[in-house]
Design a protein around this nucleic acid. Structure first.
Lengths: 220, 220, 220, 220
DNA sequence: CATGAATGAGCATTCATTCAT
DNA sequence: CATGAATGAATGCTCATTCAT
């Protein structure tokens, strides 16, 4: 049903077809509900061939995660010019990110939902991609702080938390934009830039919001 | 393994034991990978009793979601005094939220990951809880805008996007804090307040970050 | 649902209520599909009480068969006056039979279908009732043959076969009449009398249908 | 246990083996009491293969009914020459019928008992076969009536009842012959011909048995 | 007497996975 | 290379049956 059935294709091509089918199936059905039968049929090959090339369901899923994680980071990197100022880099990166997730919703579902929901090995695979992105954002924050003549007296953990929050907000917005009709990648990116950069800007200018005195609080 | 095995308990008690075991199992294994056998064993009862009280795996999962969604919203509401100013309310709410999710990581996994990954009926159950929280945050944003003498000329979608981003960031940070040792609920809340409130504050003062001209862009 | 729930009834009465519920449930659902839960609920008693009085599902089913077999033979016997001529006895017996099966379709289903479909022990229970009826019919045939001045040169097996066929036709017609609207017990009985008695009459007069020569037949 | 275990057989062959095992099991245990495990083992295959080829227990049962119904009607048709006179046709048909049911007692149990005891879909499947046979017999009766220079003033319902009674008697005799040692198909057929044809013959000659006056009867 | 609480055992069904061809 | 044939191992679910109160 999926691809046109044609014999004798080079292994690399066949493998990509299988991964296409797998990403689509995993993204829509979820890891466990996706059956190897369905994936094989969608890929237009026989099940034993899937096993010959990809070894097992777990390996297949891992291959999907790796391919799509790579594709996403490549897309984001390709959208960013490291020579430009930090805010521009963040803006470009966010736009590239939202554009990619909007174009590949199944892939995003695999990375954002499925991979994190089915055990350490898969979650770890995504985590490394996420770390790369968080590191990129962390770098931008540090650069911006420096540019604002603020010593990087922001504790490392502080910055890590900020980057984490930014990425988390982006991920959440990506899912929201995928599901809310009429929200473009550009709009999602703009919303997040408003939300984040302005907040960060204030922060840089030495006006962080300060929590009230935690005098009698048991936890927190 | 689970609870001490004691026979002949009143139904209400047994049901809570079953829900405890189910939340733990669903949270760690995922909805599909969790087996009724494992849940029953962890609850210290036989499988037929689980079915007698909870009817089916789907109903059991739904009961978990409902219980934990209720518990979370109750915890957040209990942490907030509506008579206080908006920033204080947000701060208190965030702290209550992070505290609760840190104390009940499996419950948070059920609500944040599992429930959204396994079909409309479950997702809808969580969505209503989330809507409540987003509405709460949206209200705070509007109040703050008014207090800052700004007409609420923020478009509805704009505010919705902001609230969505804030809640998304919080959700993401909760998962991060659960996984990063040494990050307290208080710290997570402070990070997010810095990130968000200051950003919103700038926004209120009429200095949103403005995107560069989108002259030649194919998509956006 | 079934009977009005009232406490403290003599055991004999409770047992009849249980048997009523069981006959109805077995007749409609079939032996295996009928659940003890449903029977207990329909009888308006708790499940353990059913076990206390009737011991097991098998015993309960056996009790149903016995009671209904007894009721049917009693009804048929009550409809027949042994002092009357054979044809009249047969006519009266058939009418009583069809009347009873029409009035108690679930009981008839238990005897005719369920009991024969679920293993020797139950089938044997019905068989003894059937034998009684076949014996009754056999007697009538012999009497009629004597009355027709025919020596009972009919082989025993011959007569047994005839009685068997007559009873089988009656059973089949009972099911047919229960299912075909507008067929009364009287009509069913008349049809069978026409079919059977006239045939037997001819037989008595020495004009049996004679099979063609079985010259080259392998089996038969 | 069942067939000799030989691997790798073409699908069509395996399917027949499965149907053989299923007919035997359903016939002896009954539809509900028969387990797919037992059927698979008797067929000498694993359970998943049964499901792969026959989809479900219901489908498997339906396939059994269809196959055996077909086999029975084919056997009867093959035994009858439509060019011969009606009595000869009936005689030949009955012999073929009793021969087939004697040779395939489990199949006859499936058709006569099991299929009628487990819900409309299955009962309907058999009903169509039965209608074919009843129609065949009805035709013979009408032809015989015409040949006897009797106007077909027999009411339609009358004829239907007669055919029903005849077929019912045959079905019942088949079960009896299967269970009574020493009763051949030929003898069963002869008994039924004597019983039925002679009766019908008398009927044709205008001497039906007439019921006594129903003066004081409540029901009838 | 009567019942709420509890379970051992089994059943239909599915799926990832592997050979023999 | 490619596949039709085949299965071991679960999994969700149900039911007849039994105690402790």
């Amino acid at each position: 049903m999926g691809a046109v059935k044609s014999k004798r294709m080079p292994r690399a091509v066949r493998e990509q077809q299988m991964l296409d089918a797998a990403v689509r199936t995993f993204g829509q059905r979820g890891y466990m509900a996706a059956s190897m039968d369905e994936i094989a049929e969608l890929a237009g090959v026989s099940k034993p061939l899937v096993y010959l090339y990809l070894n097992s369901k777990e390996d297949l899923f891992t291959a999907c995660i790796r391919r799509e994680a790579k594709a996403l980071t490549v897309a984001v990197r390709a959208g960013v010019d490291p020579a430009l100022p930090a805010d521009r880099q963040l803006w470009d990166g966010l736009r590239a990110f939202f554009t990619h997730t909007a174009r590949h919703p199944d892939a995003w579902s695999v990375l954002h939902l499925q991979a994190r929901t089915h055990g350490e090995p898969f979650a770890a695979e995504v985590a490394s991609m996420r770390e790369e992105i968080v590191a990129f954002v962390t770098g931008l924050i540090v650069v911006a702080a420096r540019a604002a003549h603020r010593d990087p007296d922001l504790a490392e953990r502080e910055v890590a938390g900020l980057a984490e929050a930014l990425v988390g907000a982006a991920e959440s917005l990506a899912a929201w934009a995928n599901v809310t009709p009429g929200v473009s990648a550009r709009q999602a990116a703009a919303t997040l830039m408003n939300f984040a950069w302005a907040g960060l800007g204030n922060l840089m200018d030495g006006q962080p919001w300060s929590p009230p005195e935690p005098v009698h609080e048991a936890i927190g």
